[in-house]
């Protein structure tokens, strides 16, 4: 993977608006954003209902994901281009999710919905209809998904990258500051995790910084490029953004996203937790 194959800009999208093999998919934290206007021809995926099991805490399974994409009119050989609000947090999460289920050709729109809006490009409220397909998802690729036991085992061994804001890392906030803070778990971070807020990888308009800038940011934060890496945040969406940077833009091997993230880790009994701005000891 590389920047050229994983990322497209707004001009590329504008040129492919009528290409039937290119499927634009909007995924937002605010799941009502699409309904107030979206890029022409884009379909919507709702991360809370379409991508999450509605009973236990997990993703929809392979058959459910296959049924979802079949119903929305996505084929296995389509080019899926994801975009969304919040600097592409949830679009990056969906990108990772499509990769988890083995979709070949997935791309992210650089800057997402914000850049598109700030550039005064057109949004429409017209409904998108695509003919149903027969989509077949692959088995989950666990080489890009980390589970809690391997996260605990990675303390002091692998790169752990905490991509939340500095105040969440230190334990001064429990959630991003646009959300109410009251929650049950302990605050803090996984000992030895480097603090590299996801936002360091993005410009103000939501586009990604250059490869050279990105390399420098993670190197200076102490990421050892010879080690495997696990990224985490609160619920796994911002860390998808960083996973995208490390794996897809910089081509780093063996990068996993820990989707359980702090809401799981910070509720585990008996695991070590570090408080404050320092990394803490293994």
């Amino acid at each position: 993977m590389s920047r050229e194959s994983a990322l497209v800009d707004a001009d590329w999208v504008a040129e492919h608006l009528d290409d039937p093999k290119v499927v634009l998919v909007e995924v937002d934290e605010d799941t009502s954003a699409y309904d107030k206007g979206h890029i022409k021809g884009a379909i919507k995926l709702d991360w809370t209902t379409d991508l999450q099991d509605q009973v236990r805490r997990d993703f929809v399974n392979k058959d459910q994901f296959s049924a979802l994409l079949s119903e929305r009119g996505v084929s296995n050989d389509d080019t899926v281009v994801l975009y969304g609000g919040n600097n592409n947090w949830f679009a990056a999460y969906a990108y990772w999710y499509f990769k988890l289920y083995g979709h070949e050709d997935v791309k992210l729109l650089d800057g997402g919905r914000k850049k598109w809006e700030l550039d005064s490009r057109e949004l429409t409220e017209d409904a998108t209809t695509r003919e149903a397909t027969t989509y077949t998802a692959k088995e989950q690729d666990h080489s890009i998904r980390a589970f809690r036991d391997e996260v605990v085992a990675a303390i002091g061994v692998q790169n752990l990258v905490d991509v939340r804001s500095p105040d969440e890392y230190a334990g001064r906030l429990m959630a991003p500051a646009h959300l109410p803070q009251e929650q049950a778990q302990r605050a803090g971070h996984i000992p030895t995790a480097a603090s590299v807020p996801w936002s360091k990888a993005a410009n103000d308009d939501g586009t990604f910084k250059s490869d050279d800038e990105l390399q420098k940011i993670y190197s200076e934060a102490g990421v050892d490029w010879n080690k495997d890496t696990i990224a985490y945040c609160r619920i796994g969406e911002r860390s998808s953004h960083t996973w995208f940077v490390l794996k897809e833009l910089l081509g780093q091997q063996n990068v996993k996203n820990y989707d359980g993230s702090w809401t799981e880790y910070g509720s585990l009994v008996g695991v070590p937790v570090a408080l404050g701005d320092e990394r803490g000891e293994a």
Binding site: D30, A33, G85, N86, N87, K114, S165, P166, D167, L173, P176, A177, H178, P197, S199, K200
Partner: peptide, 12 residues
Amino acid sequence: LDRTGEFTAEVP
């Protein structure tokens, strides 16, 4: 942005 200028959150 926090006291160091670091991004903390964004809303439309």
